[in-house]
Each structure stands twice: as C-alpha cells, then as structure tokens.
Nucleic acid binder design. Structure first.
Length: 737
RNA sequence: GGAGAUUUAGCUCAGCUGGGAGAGCAUUCGCCUUACAAGCGACAGGUCGUAGGUUCGAUCCCUACAAUCUCCACCA
C-alpha cells in the first residue's frame, strides 16, 4: 500500500469506473421500492460554491444510503436557465466582446443565450462529477429542455382555462434595473439614510422622502382622531407642484406620531397609498418613469425651494424595497401584468402538512404556513427576453423563472405524459434545498404539484442552512472569507471536502466551515488508511502470530463487536433522520478512539484477523455514503471485493455480536489502564486520588441518606449507588496503606 | 410590529424518555512505542445565560427576564 491514499490518482479512476459500470443508473424495477431525489438545479450563471457543495453532498449521502438499503435510488441531476440572471450575464459578456446587446436582433441575442447555456451546463456537470455525486446522468435535465417547455405550456393552459390566470392592471413592484415587474417574493428590504422633506400644501405640511412623486398626489390623508387636522378634513389644499386642488381625507392607516401626521396620497406609486386611494375612490395619476429618477427629485426640490413650500429637511433612516437580483430600489407602479390567483391553490398546500408532507426541520412549518396564509396573487409576467414566453398569441412577456421551476419534480420525470418513469418514480421521496428559497420554490412546487398531478411532489422537504465561516460569518467577497470547494478537492480530495462539510453540522443551524476542518479530515482518512495497512501486515505470514479461531473470540473482540453493533444502530438512526453531522462525528470517534486506540493496541500481541476484517469492512460500508472514494478503494483494492461498495448492503446489527458482560469487563479494563497511565505520569497522583475518593464517598453517603431518594428513585439506581459507595470505601482503605 | 431559533470548557459544538457534565480543537506536560509525528499517552478547563417554580432529584419540564441571530411585515 502507498504511504497515504493517493486521492488525485484514485478518485477520478473510481468515478469513471462507476460511470463505465452504469452504477448510478436507476431503472423502473417493480421488484424494488423506488427512492427518488430530484436535484435542485443550480443556475448556469455561476460556478458551484461551498453552499452547493454542501447541499449536493447531503443529497448524495441520502441516495447512496438508500441505494445500499436496497431501494431503487434515483438521483436526478439538472441545471436552471435562470432567466433574469442569465440575461444580465450574457449582456455583460457581449459588452466585453464589444457587442452592444441593445443593437442586435432578438434572435441573435437569444442565440448568444443558447451558447451560454451549452458552455456552462457542461461546466456545472463537470463540477458535480468532481463532488462524486451518484447521479443518473442519462436523466440530466435542463430547465429549457423540451420536456420542461411542454410542462410549462400544459400547466399554463390548464390554469388559464380554469380562470386562475388573469391579466390585469394592478399595482406591482417594478425593477428599473431589470426593467421588469417582480413578484412580492422578489422584493427585499435594505436600510438606508435618506432625506425627509417637509412640504407645505397650503395649511397642511407633509413629510416625504419622495418629493418627485408630488405631481401624482391625489389627496392628503390624516388620522380621523387627529385633533390638529380635524378642521381641514373635507376641505381642499393646493398641490405645490401642479397647482391642482386636492382633498384632505381621514383614514385610520395614518400614524399620528410619524412625520407631521399628514400623509400625501400617491396611489399610482406606493403600495399603501394605492389601498387608501381605492378606499376613498380616488383616481390614480400615473407618472412616467423618467419623472421618478433622482434627477427628477432634485428638480422638484429646486422648484419647491423657490416657491417657499419646502420648510424643512432632515436625515431619516428607514427601509427601502430593492430587487433581490440587482439590489436597485424597486418602483411600485400600476401596470398591466399576468397574475396567478392564489387563494384556491394555497388551500391544499396548507392542508398538505396534515396529508403526508413532512418538513424537516419542523421549525420551518410555521414559516411555510404563515406565508401561505397571507399569500397574494402571484405576478408571473416578466418584461425580459430570455425565459419562457407566455403561451398566449401575441404576448411578448416572459414567465417568472420560478413558474417553470415549480414544475421541476414532475416535468423531469416525463409529465404531462404518463411515462413509466413518472408512474414509478413519482411522487418523489426527498427534496433537499436551502431554506432561503422556501417561498420562491418549495411552496410553489407543492401547490403546482398538487394542482398538476393531483399528488404531492415529494414526501418531505429537508432544509439545509447557509454555510458560514469558522466564526459564523457569512462567506462574502468583501470579507474575503469564502472557500472554493474545488480548491479543497484539488488540495485534499473529494472525500475530505464531503466529510469535512458534513461532520459536526445539524440541519437546524447554519453549518460552519474552515480550513481546519479539511486538515482534520485529511488526518482522519490517513488514520483509516493506516489501520488498513495494519490489517495487511497482520495477514502477512512473516508478521502473523498464531491467531485464535473465529469462534474463539478474545475479550477485546467481544468488546469491539458489541461496541460496533451499537454504532450501527445509532448511525443508522441518524442517517434516517438526516442527522449526518452527528453520524459522521460518531463514526469518526468510534474508529479513532475505540477501534484504533484500543482494539488495534490489543491486537498487537495476539489478534483475530477475521473480527478485524469484519469490523473494518462493515465500517467502510457505514461511512461510504459520506466518504465514497477511499472506502471504495480499500474495499476493492485491499480487501479484494469484486463488486463496488455502491451495491453493498448497509450494515445491520448482528444479534450474535452482543456480549454485555464482556463488554462491561473490557470497559473496566480500559479504565484500569487509564488509571495506571495516569499514575505513571503523575507522581503525586495517589494524594490526589485519595481526595477524589473522599469526595466521592461523601457524595454517596449524602445521596443515600436522603430518604426521598431511597424511597422514590428506581431500585437499580439505589443499588448502584450502594455498591459504588462500598467499592470506593474499599479502594480508599487500600490506598490508605 | 409579528414569528422562530440559540445561550453548556478558551474556541466549535454533542448531550435520546429528568437520575452523578461529554467530544474535537487550542493550551500544558511526557513520548519517533515495529499502522499512522497527518501520530501516541496524560493533566488542566464548566454556579450548563439570569431569577423563580414543579420534583426525592433539573443542563433537560414550566414561568419571567436578558443577550445574540434569522425570517416575515413595513410608516410616509
């Protein structure tokens, strides 16, 4: 064997061996139960980052585990065309090449988009392969593939026929950067400092941060309880920019304590104003976009200053709504868009939580429900070029990219056709995704799946956290604390990346990653490698000592077998609960502390290669979903197995290997040795030990003197305390000599 | 404003149905012991956020408070 595991050489060899053997291919197989995981398709706009690596590793662990449990496991890979994001990227790329994207024809532009798709889809596939994902590549799907297009068409038309999709002139958030309408979910909030202007409308002064919208004002609103303004309600005031007479109205919405307590109403350019305007039957005045710029604001201020209407300026810190893609402030505007009626679609999605949909971790259930219970109609039209055209004759708008993403779990399996794949693999079992896209994607998949197929798209959704750095900070370019997963693979190998990403994480918190984890994992893999070397030497005739027969199990054998049985139980339970972080930690601890530090040491004088072999190979199986390469290498190259670990069965505890008596004895044996070592390294140990014993005895006496404890506590516990006390007294006597 | 989560050793985190606080790393000390110095052995480190309550017994259950974080809503 080499000195260390040569991952650079072996990992690609092993992966290609799997590919050549069609090992990841899932077939329709009536003799087996299917287990389907559809991959959330990464955008074709970027390289895979550490967050992708984490999520994809979690999925691959699930699939490999289920495959070993005998399921027909399908991991279906794909990539997303990411309409808006790709649009931006392609424009940038064209400008770099000296082409003005606005001067070429639509057809030409779309051709460049197609090119982009091709190049970056291949790049993404390559990166996924480097992560060691056991995907069925024959089923790779791109969100612009014909099957997806057919699904989009079918779903849109069905919803349209049902009257759930409608076109209407309504208040929507418009992004001046993306030059498109957005859905509510696509709007984020950012805290910024702005200037608040106090402006006189005759007798009433209002405070506003957007004086450029004054020409759109149709009223001034005050709180009906506000005594200061009661006398003005019902009168009119003059718009300081247009000279128009506008009414003073009373509305509960107005906060008396905020600003001057008087609110200008601009129904065409503010969400709240639109509602107030509608309540009072006011007709909105729609302004042109060029009249809503920063320059327009400065012009308005100039005019107001000259006329004396501007009475005060003050700094104000508050939230502004921005586009989640380009982060530019969005402009609420009345415009004609396509909407999806949500009320009826949301109902079954809400009920799904009682009808077979599990959300893991559970804490996301409330977030899921809250959003669905407060859902508004979904603006599905976008004014950008790439993406799916709205399938109505003459429409130039495209669909929100999430409209097609929502169909992902079934369009990838052949729907709307009732294909054998669809019949067998749908509904899918587990969807793994980041909690950030619960609204964008997960909820929309649920209601779209129920609506289109009559079934839930998945039995459960598992949410993963956001990968942070060692100190818990977000990884970001400006902090320079980002870690490129491909770099870890280059330096340490895929096994190291996968295990180090997983170990110590919990699903309900954000995972943390640092280079330290990578080196620790490298050391662990080296440990596994060397323990295997020890086994090879054990078997070499020159070194071998007369080994006991398999039936003649030594105490150490019985101990490790019992310990390993317990490990299998515990690890399997954790895998089933998707608690891979703790499973990984337990596996590592068992191997290092129990198997290497104690069992190997006990095997240096006499040994039992059969037991060693059994435990080692079962351990390799147990950890292989997380660490597929080095385990496969040892499994085939060193242990001489002909078939891949992929097709091995996941270990189940062996009832024969349960020796509670010998187990306890060996644990005591370990304790004794530790005490001896301790005595050796610390001369004054005896004095110390006496102190501890005295304390222990005092504690035991106190506990047993407590009548409540003796009467109420379980009998075994009381008995245990009694014997412990006696033993300690005996020991103290011996040491006292 | 509404909701949720977290708080355990210097750091990062485990602790299943309440029954004497655990790991890894870091620190300190001693070791090249024939699988491994990417290693081995050992010591030291904790009023389990604060204050009450339930219980024979609370890190665990209940109440209040505090700090940190996240999501949602958003007031001109």
């Amino acid at each position: 064997m080499d000195k260390t595991f040569d991952f650079a050489k072996n990992e690609p060899l092993i992966y290609n061996k799997w590919l050549d053997g069609n090992a990841f291919r899932a077939e329709v197989n009536p003799d087996k139960k299917p287990y389907t995981v559809i991959m959330p398709p990464p955008n074709v706009t970027a390289r895979l980052h550490i967050g992708h690596a984490f999520g994809l590793t979690v999925q691959d662990i699930i699939v490999r585990f289920k495959r070993m449990q005998g399921f027909e496991a399908l991991f279906l890979p794909g990539a997303d065309h990411a309409a808006v994001a790709t649009d931006v990227k392609v424009r940038e790329e064209l400008k770099k090449r000296g082409i003005d994207p606005n001067k070429i024809s639509d057809a030409e532009f779309l051709q460049h988009v197609e090119e982009w798709y091709k190049i970056y889809t291949e790049q993404i596939k390559e990166q996924m392969k480097r992560l060691g994902l056991s995907c069925d590549w024959s089923r790779f799907t791109f969100t612009k593939d014909p099957c997806a297009a057919k699904a989009v068409d079918t779903v849109f038309n069905n919803l349209y026929k049902k009257g759930l999709i409608y076109k209407g002139s309504r208040m929507v958030n418009f992004c001046p950067g993306c030059k498109s309408a957005l859905s509510d979910a696509e709007v984020e909030y950012k805290t910024v400092e702005r200037t608040m202007y106090h402006i006189k409308y005759d007798t009433i002064t209002v405070a506003t941060v957007r004086p450029e919208t004054i020409p759109g004002d149709v009223a001034i609103a005050v709180n009906p309880k506000d005594k200061r303004y009661a006398k003005f309600v019902g009168t009119t005031v003059t718009n300081p920019l247009t000279g128009a007479k506008i009414p003073v109205i009373a509305d509960d919405y107005v906060d008396m304590k905020f600003g001057t307590g008087a609110l200008k109403i601009t129904p065409a350019h503010d969400m709240a104003d639109a509602e107030i305007g509608a309540r009072h039957g006011l007709k909105p005045i729609i302004l042109k976009t060029e009249d809503l710029t920063d320059e327009a604001r400065l012009r308005a201020i100039e005019v107001l200053k000259k006329s004396g209407a501007l009475v005060k300026e003050q700094k104000y810190t508050g939230n502004i709504s921005v586009c989640y893609r380009c982060f530019r402030p969005v402009e609420p505007t009345i415009s004609e868009q396509w909407f999806l009626k949500m009320r009826d679609l949301a109902k079954p999605a809400i009920e799904a939580l009682n009808n077979g949909l599990a959300i893991v971790p559970k804490k996301y259930e409330k977030i899921y429900l809250h959003w669905l219970n407060n859902i508004k109609d979904w603006c599905i039209s976008r004014q950008i070029k790439s993406g799916y055209k709205i399938p109505i004759k003459g429409e130039t708008d495209t669909l929100d990219t999430w409209f097609s993403s929502a169909l992902w779990p079934f369009c990838t399996l052949g729907w709307p056709d009732n294909t054998p794949d669809f019949k067998y693999f749908y509904p899918t079992q587990t969807l793994v995704t980041a909690y950030e896209i619960i609204f964008f994607w997960v909820i929309r998949m649920v209601f779209s799946g129920i609506e289109a197929t009559g079934k839930l798209p998945f039995e459960r959704v598992v949410f993963t956290g956001l990968v942070r750095d060692g100190q818990g900070r977000k990884m970001s370019k400006s902090l320079g604390n980002g870690i490129d997963p491909v770099k870890i693979i280059d330096e340490f190998g895929t096994d190291v990346l996968r295990f180090s990403l997983i170990v110590g994480t919990k699903l309900d918190r954000d995972p943390r990653y640092s280079m330290e984890k990578a080196t620790l994992t490298r050391n662990f893999i080296n440990k596994i490698w060397n323990a295997t070397k020890f086994f090879e030497n054990m078997q070499t005739p020159a070194v071998a000592t007369p080994a006991p027969k398999a039936t003649a199990l030594r105490p150490a054998d019985k101990w490790i077998l019992t310990k390993f049985n317990n490990l299998i139980k515990s690890v399997t339970k954790k895998y089933e609960k998707f608690d891979f972080g703790v499973a990984a930690a337990e596996l590592q601890h068992f191997f290092w502390a129990d198997f290497c530090d104690w069992y190997i040491e006990e095997s240096k004088q006499t040994n039992n290669p059969e037991v060693y072999h059994d435990v080692l190979s079962a351990f390799l199986k147990l950890i292989s979903p997380i660490m597929p390469f080095v385990t496969e290498n040892i499994w085939t190259e060193v242990l001489g197995n002909r078939t891949s670990l992929l097709s091995a069965t996941f270990p189940i505890p062996n009832p024969k290997y349960n020796f509670p008596k010998e187990f306890k004895e060996f644990e005591q044996h370990i304790e004794r040795i530790k005490t001896e070592r301790n005595a050796k390294s610390e001369a004054e140990n005896a004095v110390k030990k006496i102190e501890i014993l005295k304390k222990e005895i005092a504690r035991g006496e106190q506990v047993l003197a407590n009548k409540g404890f003796v009467d109420h506590a379980p009998k075994e516990l009381v008995a245990k305390e009694r014997t412990k006390l006696e033993e300690n007294r005996k020991l103290l006597k011996e040491l006292g000599k």
